[in-house]
Simulated assay, not measured.
Amino acid sequence: MLQCHVKDLSMQRHHGARRRPSLSLPILRTSRSQHRNGSLTLGNLLSALGERSFGWAIVVFSLITLLPLPPGSTLITALPLLVTTCQMALGYPHVRLPGPLVRLKLDPDKLRRAVLGLRPITRRLERVLAPRYLPMFARRNERLLGVVLFVVAFALFLPVPLSGWFPAISLFVFGVGHVERDGLVAMLGLALGMTSVLLTVVIVVSLAAGAEALIH
């Protein structure tokens, strides 16, 4: 009898772990509900998710940069990430969006495609996410994190061919780690971000060298 009871508890824990809420569901459900009400704006979406959190802001803004938009659109879509990471670096206690960004209307279909396009990544993250390395998110570390993330966001902002998606995904991974208070996943996002910065530098230098060779 005792063995059966232990076995049942083990199975419940196992199935409970498997039923971990999807990272995509809060965004999909909130955006769908607000779209039906005609209130789907960037400010309203963040308010519903947790506007005060830098993590949710970075997750949502990185998703926006991955929307199916014309080349060069990161000059506009990366601006919220630059604002957010700059505020983080300056020691703001929470995100403060300018009015135009708060009122920015979102396309629910494009947002849904961006979220679903990242499902291969979010599924893997969902399997390993757990609160750990919590000192990383201490208030004293936020400014340094903000500086690093601002550099990554700036790499995303630059209209460099073939490099935009990499900084966006690295910021998304960091944002997920921040929301879930998983320092290991956040560090993975930072590592990917610095790799993306290096890739951007290499591409820019290569393009500059090619342009100089054509001129001469």
Rank of each mutant, 00 (worst) to 15 (best):
Q34N: 05
Q34D: 10
H35C: 06
H35L: 02
N37K: 13
G38M: 02
L40D: 01
L40F: 05
T41P: 09
T41N: 07
T41V: 08
L42G: 00
L42D: 00
L42W: 02
L42Y: 05
G43F: 00
G43E: 02
G43C: 00
G43D: 01
N44Q: 12
L45R: 01
L45D: 03
L46C: 05
L46V: 07
S47A: 14
L49R: 04
L49Q: 02
E51K: 11
R52S: 15
R52T: 13
S53F: 10
W56T: 04
W56A: 03
A57M: 08
A57T: 12
I58N: 08
V59N: 12
V60C: 04
V60W: 05
F61A: 11
F61S: 09
S62A: 15
S62P: 12
L63Q: 10
L63I: 11
T65C: 15
L66Q: 13
L67I: 01
P68E: 04
P68Y: 04
P71C: 05
P71D: 05
P71T: 04
P71A: 09
G72W: 01
S73Q: 05
S73I: 05
L75M: 09
L75A: 05
I76E: 05
I76N: 06
I76K: 06
I76Y: 12
T77H: 08
T77R: 10
A78F: 11
A78P: 11
A78S: 14
L79A: 03
L79C: 01
L81W: 02
L81S: 07
L82D: 05
L82T: 06
L82W: 03
V83R: 03
V83P: 00
T84Y: 03
T84C: 13
T84L: 07
C86I: 08
C86K: 12
C86E: 11
Q87I: 09
Q87R: 04
M88Y: 11
M88I: 08
A89H: 01
L90A: 15
L90M: 15
G91D: 10
Y92S: 15
Y92R: 15
Y92C: 14
P93V: 11
P93T: 12
V95A: 04
V95I: 11
R96E: 13
R96V: 13
R96W: 11
L97H: 09
G99D: 13
G99I: 03
G99K: 11
P100I: 07
P100K: 06
L101K: 13
L101M: 15
V102T: 14
V102R: 15
V102E: 13
R103S: 14
K105T: 13
K105R: 15
L106C: 05
L106E: 07
D107Y: 08
P108G: 08
P108V: 08
P108L: 07
D109A: 14
D109K: 09
K110S: 07
